[in-house]
């Protein structure tokens, strides 16, 4: 059995676990714990403290694992471990929380430094009325026009599929360009 992996990262409460849950064929193996910090608890009740992962079986020989990283900085020692051997990564950003954009940028830079593999940025919660416009987010996140910043709704399977496919297209294109 061959296995490959992708990593879903992003700031605290960006929707990483939900994203994986939307496409995983198994219940996401999550290590969520009750949040101790009062300020963080205002966002949600539990958070990913180590990592979670979902699985998509491609065929009898190949399995894709999706690893979600813990969003809080105090668990960032896990990031490098999780980034090892990944095909590519997805940076989730909550479009309704501009206060997390700077951190998203920093996480993106850190992951890119760990492994210069293809990545896409998913602007989550685009269905919410307070969501930032994609073009404005690209500007604030300082993403070059060649980096894919995609609209996303993490609880919508079609939306998550589209993000995964865009990342796979980028990986394929990267491989083909590398051969030229």
């Amino acid at each position: 059995m061959q296995t490959v992996k992708m990593v879903v990262t992003g700031p605290f409460s960006a929707g990483k676990t939900e994203f994986i849950r939307s496409v995983s064929e198994i219940d996401v193996v999550s290590t969520e714990r009750k949040i101790s910090s009062a300020s963080e608890r205002t966002m949600k009740e539990a958070t990913t403290v180590a990592m979670d992962f979902g699985r998509i079986t491609v065929d009898e020989d190949l399995v894709l694992y999706l690893f979600g990283t813990p969003g809080q900085r105090r668990f960032d020692f896990m990031w490098e471990i999780l980034s090892e051997g990944m095909l590519g990564f997805i940076v989730m950003v909550d479009s309704t929380r501009p206060e997390t954009f700077r951190e998203a940028r920093s996480i993106l830079a850190t992951f890119h430094a760990y492994a210069p593999t293809p990545y896409v940025v998913a602007a989550n919660k685009q269905d919410m009325k307070e969501a930032w416009d994609i073009d404005d987010m690209r500007h604030v996140l300082r993403l070059d026009s060649n980096i894919k910043l995609l609209s996303c709704i993490a609880h919508d399977r079609a939306s998550v599929k589209a993000i995964l496919l865009e990342l796979l297209y980028s990986i394929l294109s990267n491989m083909e360009n590398g051969e030229k």
């Binding site: 061959q2 496409v23 998509i56």
Partner: peptide, 16 residues
């Protein structure tokens, strides 16, 4: 084989 693997992944995700 690597490219074939990515194409298999693409087809699988499309079929989800």
């Amino acid at each position: 084989e690597q490219k074939s693997l990515i194409n298999r992944l693409i087809n699988r995700i499309r079929s989800l």
